[in-house]
Structures are given as structure tokens and as C-alpha cells.
Design a binder for these strands. Structure first.
Lengths: 339, 339
DNA sequence: ATGATAAAGGCGAACGTTCGCCTAGAGAGA
DNA sequence: TCTCTCTAGGCGAACGTTCGCCTTTATCAT
């Protein structure tokens, strides 16, 4: 019907007051006579007035936007995280008067440029980073700029910044303890390359749990490689082809994709998954429950992480005291038939 | 280093011209002496000036934002679409000077309110809708408001609006033709409830292909239900328990989750998937290739759809002539071992 | 010499808010 | 009656752009 924008002046004209008064009344910054209040409210209602967000932001000198960018996954991979993480960020942001601004992921040095541009153009008040790793150039840059950000994931221990992370070590530890409790001693782990901060964290839980149970770490049981199906399958075939007294009875993979590769390998060698060979994954991808057999996996509280990131970032941006600079969320082991 | 914002005036002061001149020069709206140009460019470079996007939008009376909201999936489900669709929208939008603004999904009548609020507050210049269905209240509302939007998905045939969709009928047709070519005649289909526009579209491809091949449609082979694992499994068990001369030799499901349920059912009945029973899914979820056996499925050009949606919407918003109001993209059958 | 024309750039205004300060009138205390 | 203090609300300014129009100076053809 009415395509034309309704402004404060329109409301003011109809209510018979100055437009600044309308502004103040709507923002609760002023006492007015009850009848005036009534007239203003009626005008707002009848005209369908909503404050123009751009003008408001202009005046405030802020954008009330949170920049977020994520690494695009390769064609074969799923980003089952994104939906949960982004949805929970958007919801929490909206609840506190912010929006999330997704921007394109860039490779290499162009990546930091994208962050710089968003800052300089006043497009965002802060960032949430994900997929952080050691020596992350974005963190380095934002720290130097003193620009507010919260990282989903830890980085170099000597860098001082606010982060939210999932306790990967605890997740793996839980899984390994479970396997040990079921009587397994020869437990192998399909880990990631050494330059992966997340991979090292998760691997640490394996080392801790084995040591706590006084089981020596067999170097041949710790395999590293890219977290893909093919790598998981190849590593598992290698393990299964060891002499039978050395062959592991349980394999944990640091993500579900590798675990599925491990399942394929077990099937190829004619082993019953969950019976002859226990397999545990990490991430609890949505498909995990539908695999044959359903995959035991470590589930991460992704939505909670997104929520926390926004909560901390907004506190940072608004200069409120931040209760906790570091939030470490606990994952949980979802036990199914594969282990 | 410099936390303070750099504005046109700062640049102008350093270059020794008026700030409006800087604006015009940067926007290519004015001819200046080469030396002046040089001074301005140097000042911009040295100060790291970027135009303030909020002020620019304020002046333009537009936000250069595209609103987008998606239905949150249930815990067990994946939204493997989101990453591709959103990424491609963000990339395309960025290329033409826009951003994508995700906002929280609301149930029921609050949903339209969210759209209305975004319009009134000047937050967005247009919308991309997804998960559209028959009688979609959002489409109804936006048409009445004459507010620019592009739907990813069709709705009521008599509503006149711009959409991008994937030719689901063609996808199913391709799959069924493939099955027929492999000698199958007793082909069942696991379809969705009748109120699903997408489901009916995909189902139509089955009907078309069967008819074209002169194979009568067996009513008992067309099963409808929610697109979940459990429903897919239950429907398949029902089909497999038919007398052997009536039992289908191939089953197509309208999504991968149901197809995986069908695979579970086949396994329970001791049938070899791809040998005793052919199974085809729809969506080509990333996990499909890692299933045992790998699932034959219909792949949709999601990224292209996202790209097109933004392209059309921007044309709409800027009042440019839209080459094609309706874009129907072709899916492709990815043949693997399950059929 | 003179007027026309173009090039180079200045200036005021406006977009819709919010913020701080000002004012008119009423009520109250002395 | 005078002043002092509230209360309700008005008014100007500013945020950083862009747009339209104006002014100045140089260039050129007549």
C-alpha cells in the first residue's frame, strides 16, 4: 500500500508535537503528558512508523553489525556446523539489537584486507572469527587494530584475546575412556596434521586418557593426515593389515568423515563394525545416526558456542565488563552401535 | 593504530580541496587537474580512507542489503544447502555492492511481521525467500507491498512474481528413465505429503517418465509421507513385504534422508542394495557418496541458484529490465553403486 | 577587444536520527 | 507580589555522504 517511508516528522505532524519530542518519547528519554503520549502512540500505530535503522546508526556512529565469514567447504564436504552456528548467532544478535553481516571468505592476504575494509567503512562493530588456527593473521591484525572480536576457537597461547571454544581434548578423552571401559587396550587414533590446533587439542585427550589408564602410547597407533574419507580409509586399512596381535581393536577418528572412511575399510576387510572393530567419530554429523551401524560420535554444543560468541562480542563492543574472557564448552559422547 | 574514523573532510584537508570535491573525484563524477587528482589519491592512500557505508546509504535512502531468512532444520536433519546457497549469495551480492542480511526465522504470523519490520525500518532493499510453498504468506504480503523479492522456489501458479527454481520434475524424470533403461519396471516412489509444492513437482517427473515408457502407474507404488529416515524406512519395509511378484525392484526417494531409510530397510530384509534392489535419492547430500553402497542421487545446482536469485533481485531493486522473470535450473543425476 | 564556452572546484542542503540545551508556563514558598 | 523550581516540550546541531547549482579562471573563436 504505502511505499513511501514514514519518518519521525510524519508522526510528529500527526501528533502535533515536534519530531524531536517524538524521538525522545519513543526512546523513553522524556516525560510527557499522558494525553500527548497517547497521541504519539496513536500516530505511530496508524502510520506504522519504525525508526530508520540507517539514520539511527549514522547518528550513533556505529553499525550494530557483527561481521562473520566462514571458510567455504570443498564440494565433497558438509558444513553441518554453519546452520546451527549462524542461526544461533543471528538469533542472539537480534535479541540484543544487532545483526550478523556475512561477508565473502577470501584466501591468503586478501583475507585480512576484507576485515580492514569492513572496519574502515564502518560496516561492522566487531567480528566473530571461526576456523582459527595457530598464528591466525586475522587475530594478529585485529589485536593490533584493537578492534573488538571474539574467536570461536583458540590460537597461540600467548595471545591475549577473547575466545569461545569447545573442549576437544575432553571430548576425545571421554570417548577413549569409554573404549577403555569396554575393555579395549589397543586403541588407534586417526589424527590431523601437526599444524592443526584443533587436531592437536583433540589428540591430547587421547594421550591423556591412555596415560591415565596406564596404557602405553604405541606410536604406530597415532596416524596423522587430512580429515577426509579417503585418508581415513587408507589409514584404517593400514592398521587392519598389521599382524593380528598388533591390530587395534578400536579406532577413534578426529572427525566423522574419517570415521566413515574407517567404516568402509573395516567393511572391506570383512570386520563387523562395533563387534570386531569399534569405531568412534567426532562432530556428530547429522548423518552419523543413519549410518550402518549408527556411528558413536562426540557432539559439540555448536549453538551454545554461537550464542556465547555474540554475547561476549556485544559486551566487548559496548565496553561492558566481560565476565569471562575464555569460555570452554563441554562436548558429549553420543553412544551408538559402532562402539 | 588509528582507531579514529577517517572521513572525507580529513582527506580533503590533507589534499587541500573541499570535501565535496573529494567525494566527486572518488566517484568519478568530476574532472580535476591531474595534480589535484594525485594529491587526493595520495591522501586517500596515506590515511586509509574508505567511504562510510552508513552515511552513503543514508544519503542514498537505501540500505544495499538483501534480507534472507531460512527455516531452521530439526536437530537430526542437515541443511547442506545453506552453506552453498548462502555463500554464493554473499559472493554475488558483494560483487555488485550489496550485502546479505540474515534475520531470525519466525514461526506463524510473526514471520510476516519480521519482513514488515525490516521494510519499515529501511533495513533491506529486497528479499530472497527460500522454502516457499503453496499460498506462502510472505509472497502474498510482499506482492501487496510491491516490495522487491525473488523466491527460490515456485508457489501458486497464478501469482506473478520473480523466481528461481530447480526443475525437480526433470531430476526425477532423469532418474526414473535411468532405472527404466536398466530394465526396471516395478519402480516405487517415496513421495511427500500433497501440500508440498516441491514434492509434487518432483513426483510429477516420476509420473511423466513412467507414462512416457508406457508403464502403468501402480497406486501402491506411490507412497507419501514426511521426508524423514524413519518414514523412508517404514515405507520401504511395507513395499518389500509385498508378495514377491508385486515387490518393486527399484525405489526412488524424493530426498536422501528417505533414501537412507530405504537402504536401512533393504539391509534389514537382507537385500543387496544396487543388486537386489535399486535405490535412488534426491539432493545429493555430501554424505551420499560415502554411504555403503554410495548412493545414486540427483544433484541440484544450489550455488547457481543463489547466484541467480541475487542477480535477479538486484536488477529488480535497481529497476533494471529483468531478462527473465523465471529461471528453471536443471539438476543432474549422479550415478553411484546404489542403482 | 569581447563574449561565449568549458574546465576546475566551491558551497549549501538534505537524508532521519539523537543529543544537549533552552524556554514558557505553572505551582509553590516567602 | 516576587522569585525559585519544576515540568513539558521546542529548537539547533551533528553524524558523513552525495547532489545540484554556482563561481572563478582560462581558452577560444569572432
Amino acid at each position: 500500500m504505502t511505499a513511501t517511508k514514514v519518518t519521525l516528522k510524519d508522526v510528529a505532524a500527526r501528533a502535533g508535537v515536534s519530531y524531536q519530542t517524538v524521538s525522545k518519547v519513543l526512546n523513553g528519554d522524556m516525560q510527557v503528558a499522558p494525553e500527548t503520549m497517547e497521541r504519539i502512540q496513536a500516530a505511530v500505530r496508524e502510520l506504522g512508523y519504525r525508526p530508520n535503522r540507517i539514520a539511527r546508526n549514522m547518528r550513533a556512529g556505529r553499525s550494530f553489525m557483527i561481521g562473520y565469514s566462514w571458510t567455504q567447504t570443498e564440494p565433497g564436504q558438509v558444513n553441518h556446523i554453519l546452520d546451527q552456528f549462524l542461526s544461533s548467532m543471528v538469533r542472539e544478535a537480534s535479541a540484543v539489537g544487532y545483526y550478523v553481516l556475512p561477508f565473502p571468505f577470501q584466501e591468503g592476504s586478501a583475507q585480512v584486507d576484507a576485515y580492514r575494509d569492513l572496519i574502515r567503512s564502518g560496516n561492522v562493530d566487531g567480528f566473530v572469527l571461526s576456523s582459527v588456527n595457530y598464528n591466525d593473521p586475522r587475530i594478529q591484525f585485529l589485536l593490533k587494530q584493537k578492534f573488538p572480536f571474539v574467536a570461536f576457537g583458540r590460537s597461540n597461547p600467548d595471545w591475549d584475546f577473547t575466545w569461545v571454544d569447545i573442549d576437544g581434548a575432553a571430548g576425545t578423552r571421554q570417548a577413549i575412556e569409554y573404549l577403555i571401559g569396554r575393555g579395549h587396550r589397543r586403541i588407534a587414533i586417526l589424527a590431523w596434521p601437526e599444524d592443526s590446533r584443533v587436531g592437536n587439542d583433540r589428540l591430547q585427550g587421547y594421550l591423556d586418557a591412555m596415560q591415565a589408564a596406564q596404557i602405553g602410547i604405541e606410536p604406530g597407533y597415532v596416524l596423522r593426515g587430512e580429515g577426509t574419507f579417503d585418508v581415513g580409509r587408507a589409514m584404517t586399512l593400514h592398521l587392519l593389515d598389521l599382524p593380528s596381535e598388533q591390530r587395534p581393536t578400536a579406532i577413534m577418528a578426529l572427525n566423522d568423515t574419517m570415521a566413515i572412511g574407517a567404516m568402509a575399510a573395516a567393511r572391506e576387510r570383512g570386520l563387523g563394525i562395533g563387534t570386531d572393530l569399534a569405531i568412534i567419530g567426532f562432530d556428530d554429523a547429522p548423518m552419523a545416526q543413519y549410518l550402518f551401524p549408527p556411528l558413536t560420535s562426540v557432539r559439540q554444543p555448536i549453538a551454545e558456542a554461537g550464542h556465547k560468541c555474540v554475547e561476549l562480542l556485544v559486551a566487548l563492543v559496548e565496553g561492558q565488563p566481560v565476565a569471562q574472557k575464555h569460555v570452554l564448552l563441554q562436548p558429549s559422547l553420543i553412544i551408538r552401535a559402532s562402539a
